[in-house]
Structure formats: C-alpha cells, structure tokens
Nucleic acid binder design. Structure first.
Lengths: 326, 326
DNA sequence: ATCTCTTGTGGAAAGGTTTTCACATTAATA
DNA sequence: TATTAATGTGAAAACCTTTCCACAAGAGAT
C-alpha cells in the first residue's frame, strides 16, 4: 500500500509538504497542493492511522465500559453514543464488563496500554482505585473524585413517579428496586436518588407507610418466581414504582397472574422510557431518560475534557412517558 | 510514562533484550530475565500498544459492522462476540451501520485505514464493491465472493416451523416476513432460506395455498397499524410463521386485538429463540439460533483466516425453542 | 586444539506519520 | 532600495516498538 513517501516522490516534493496538504496545516502553494492531491488520488493513498497515532498519541477511539449491552437501556445508550461518536469522527470500542470486576479491571488496563483517547464508564463495581490519571474518563450515573459525570435527574424521576401515582388516587404505595447492583453492595450510584425523590414526595403528601422492596439483583435480570415470592405479603397495594422497566414488566406479570388488572386495580410506573424493540401487549407508563441527550452530554464532556471550566457535571432532565399502566 | 528504553537502562541491558523478555521470544539468560522483570515492575512499565502495532501491523482489534445493535438478536450476538473476543485477547470495535449505506461504507474505509485485524460483517446493503482485499472479513448470514461466512441453518429453521404448525393441526397457514431488508432490495441474504424451507415442507405435506405476506421492512421495526392492515384480509388463518420474534410479537398483538386467542385459535412460531430481556406475558415458540455458537464459529474463522483449508463456511444448527404460542 | 553448534546480547533499521527548525522565496512596508 | 514580514518548502528528529543481523562466549564433538 502506498505510503506518504511514495506520494512525495510522485508529487516531486517533500513528505512534510504532503503531510501539510493532508492535514490542511501550514503554508502550501496552490500548485503544489494540486500536485499532491493528484498524486494522492493516483496512488489511492490513505494515511496509515496507526502511524499517525504513533506521533499524535491519539487514536480517536473512545471506549465504553458498561455492565451489559443486552440490558435494554444500556443497549440504547450504547447505540446513541456510537452514533454521536461517529458524527465527530471517533470510533467506539465496546467493553462489556459482564458484571465481572476482574474483566472490568482488565479492560481498564488494556485501554490504558492502547492509549484510547477516552473512556466512558458505567459501572456498579468498586473500581475507584483503578482509575488512572492518564486516562480521560467520563462517568455515567456515578460519582468518582475528579471524574466528570453525567446523570439523568433521578431524584426528579422519583418525584414524577410519586406524583403520578398520587394524582391517580393510589393510597397503598410500594417501591420495588435495589440501589446497589454491583458485586460490592456498598457502592452507591446516582440511581438511588430515584427512591429518595419518590419517598420525599410521598411523605410531603402525608403518605408514610410506604412499602419498600429490596432484593438482591444480579445481572439486572429478575425471575417471575423471585418476585412472586417477594410481593406475596402485599396483596392490597394499589400503586407501584419500579426502578426499571425490566422490573416493571415482571411485576405486572406477577400481578396479572394473581388476577389483578393493571392499571384498573394496580397502577405501575416504570423507569427508562417504556420503549421496547417489540410491540408488546402493554406500553409501560415510565420515567423517560432520553438516551440521545445523555449521549450528547457525554460526548460534550469528552470533547472539552481539558477545558478547566467547572462545568464537570451534567444532569439531564427526565419526564414522564405516557403508557397504559398508570 | 516509562518506555522500553527506561527499562533497558534500569536493567542494564539493551532494549532488544527487554523486548525478548516481554514477548518470550529468543534466548534470554535466566538472571538477565529476572533483572528485566524487576525493572519492569519497579517502573510500572506497560508496552505501548500503538507502537507495537506500528511494527507488527496488527492491533488485535476486530470490528463488527451490523445494522443496529438495538435489534434484540443482533444485540445478543454482539454481546457474545465481545465476550469471545475478550477471551482471546482481542478488542471489539462497534460499528452500527444504522441501515445507512454511506455510513457503512465510511466505516469500511475507516477500518482499513486503521488497520484493524478483521471485520465481522452483517449487512443487507450492497457493499460488495467496497470489500477490500486487504481487510480480512467474515460475513454472517450473507454470501460474498471469496468471503468466508457463518450462517445459522435457516432452511432447517423453516422446516422446523412448518412441522410444528402441521403437527399441531394447522390448515390455513401464513408466512410473514420480508427477505430483503436493505436499501437495495435485490440483495438476498441467507435469511431468505427460512421461507424456502418453510414452503418446501408445507408442500411436501400437501399444503399448497400458503399465504405469503411481504412488506417493506425498514430498520427492522414494524408498527401494529401496518400489520393490522396487512393481515386484515386473512381472518381464517390458523397458523403463522414469522421471520423474527419482533414480527411475531406484533402479529400476536394484532391477533389479540381482534379477539383471537393465541395459541388456541391461531398458532404462532417466531424466529430468534424467544429470549427477551423482559418477562413479558407470553414466551414465543420460536426457532432458536444460538448466538454464542455463532460467535464462536465466527471467531474460529477469524483465527485461522489464512489457513487455506476449504472449510470457509460454517452452518450452525437450529432447534425449536418451546414457548406458549404454538 | 580446532571447529561447530547453541545460547546470549545489543546496535541499528524499519514501520509511517507529524512536527520542528532552518532556510528560501516573495510580498509589503518604510 | 533596504528591511521586515509573510509565505513556502524539505531534511531530520521524534514517537516506541519489533526484528534482523552481527558478534561473543561457552559447550560439545572431532
């Protein structure tokens, strides 16, 4: 494959000149530029990006570490991040941590050695000590010292869910979710604010005996059987807020198997926007966090990573997405 | 960050020796090796992978071009491909073509310039002329000249679906699907064999007036309204085979909205395995193509890409996955 | 004692860019 | 016209490895 030297020879100039033409930098006389462009076309020359990275120490690769791209919301976010990165000429490296701490650490290490330009980190694991200063990181939904981050307005999401259930006449209200989903349960993500916003709002409306279901959630998957057992003691509940749509779907299935009608007997609000790839029987009433807005915010942070503006935290507004369950 | 030269100085040897230690190649005296290892540890040295790629012309990056990672089956396949690549020390670059030919071409170009080791190509677009000889490619579900490929046994999938419907007493049978899903509808993928296997089997059982629904499918998404219209003329159908689970879910919703019971009145068989992230009301009876087996086959092809064994085509067996709809 | 083979080591080239620097030319200003 | 400024260009260094090659020393064989 032709290299820059071949082009220089063909265009009868130095390689520095070819480089200037390619990068549109420095001075190049019009005629010279045209000669170079002609040579480039004739030889079908394309700069070797590896060699370029060698000198620039940049490779326009952004890595996205996330628990599992199969999770509906993460998969959506991934998609939008990829689209936005492409728009700005970057490539995306996908790193599923698969909920395994050691895989996540291995990736963090590998990424540093590969000199990726930046990392987007979405994790429930205790990786604080592995975050290297040399690796620009933007975190989603999770606070680390000195690491800029993006989160959706989880607290307000909880508020919206509470208001919806209250305004639709619910009296006996339940929250279903777990806050800490990683291998190390002491880790708290921004997601836990959903519960707080929800509880605060209910209390403000003098609803105090709120039922709070916590469960050990691994891999974000929950079985119908697990939930059936967990929910059994609470037959008279009439309003439920679930920490994700995935949980909401399972809860609805449990309710219906028990002869309850949704939303007539029990109202259910989910979280993530009620979008699914499939056309299922019911669209969930849900708190919508817009994945494209989140993606844009993340890319914005990455692009002026070194800009020392204190604007290192971006909260994306949420709104309620109408569905058929509340 | 320390480089190989620093290590050499610290270990009082040449850089070639350090390189030999790192790569476990050539002769190195035991004592020398230990000195080098000590220096590496002390300096926290990690080889710069970009520089490595510079000389080896390999970077252990495999790109996966696919229409849309949000599609359930593609998302699953993506996940397994990533896992398997990680196992063999490779990284994955995610390239959603987003159904846009020009984006796909841009990626193909970019990947070549970035000297990725290989590309996994899953496309419905007419990209034949853009496949460069310098870029090792494995194709999924699609035949290109001189390109090794993996496909699931789509024909047999069609056979299984037909047999299921027949053995469950269906008489008036329908196929719902489109074969060519890209921007250029003349492109045929291996998926079209689903229909062929299905039809062949029905005919063998003397079922001949098969209803064949084709529709213009964009982005793999279909609306309930579209299908409601398409299916309206065929109220007496009692067995339906859908080209994907996504389609099957929508079809079921149309049927139920019309007062038909599934599977009592109408049996529905989908394709992709009936797995979903969510616990929906119904699990689809479906033809299962195992994404992990497919991922393994793809990686196997990539790894001995240059081995000139003619074994350049791998067909993955499918089986029926029990569900509640047929 | 000489020759050959194996083991062990380091200098230097190669890989393909970008960027710095020095120098050359042309244009603008006094 | 002399002086400075702007424009234009190429050689060479730098980026950090791997690998080739030459050479040394010790072991084994004749």
């Amino acid at each position: 494959m032709a290299n820059i030297k071949d082009v220089a020879k063909q265009a009868e100039c130095g390689i520095a000149t070819v480089s200037r033409v390619i990068n549109k930098s420095g001075y190049v006389k019009k005629e010279t530029r045209e000669k170079v462009e002609k040579a480039i076309k004739e030889l079908g020359y394309k700069p070797n990006e590896i060699a370029r990275s060698m000198t620039t120490q940049k490779n326009k690769i952004v890595a996205f570490i996330l628990p599992n791209s199969k999770h509906i919301f993460f998969g959506e976010l991934l998609y939008h991040v990829e689209e936005r990165l492409f728009d700005v000429g970057n490539k995306l490296m996908l790193c599923n941590s698969s909920e395994r701490l050691e895989k996540e650490i291995a990736y963090l290490d590998m990424l540093k050695n590969n000199r990726v330009d930046a990392v987007i980190l979405l994790t429930n694991n205790d990786v604080e000590s592995y975050l290297n200063k040399r690796l620009p990181i933007v975190s989603f939904d999770r606070y680390f010292d000195d690491v800029p981050y993006v989160a959706s307005d989880n607290y307000h999401g909880g508020v919206l869910a509470a208001e919806r259930l209250i305004s639709h006449g619910c009296k006996k209200i339940m929250f279903v979710g777990d806050d800490a989903q990683g291998e190390h349960t002491e880790v708290k993500t921004d997601v836990s604010n959903r519960r707080i916003g929800f509880f605060d709002t209910l209390k403000k409306h003098n609803i105090n005996n709120i039922i709070n279901i916590e469960y050990p959630l691994k891999n974000y998957f929950v079985t119908v059987e697990q939930f059936s057992e967990l929910l059994k003691p609470y037959q008279d509940v009439d309003g439920i807020f679930c920490i994700s749509d995935a949980v909401a779907y399972t809860v609805i299935r449990v309710l219906e198997s028990r002869g309850k009608r949704v939303p007539d007997d029990v109202k259910v609000v989910g979280y993530d926007g009620g979008r699914t790839f499939y056309n299922f029987g019911k669209k969930i009433t849900s708190i919508n966090q817009d994945p494209d807005e989140i993606a844009k915010a993340i890319i914005r942070l990455l692009q002026n990573f070194n800009a020392k503006d204190s604007n290192k935290k971006i909260i994306i507004p949420v709104k309620i997405s109408e569905g058929d369950t509340a």
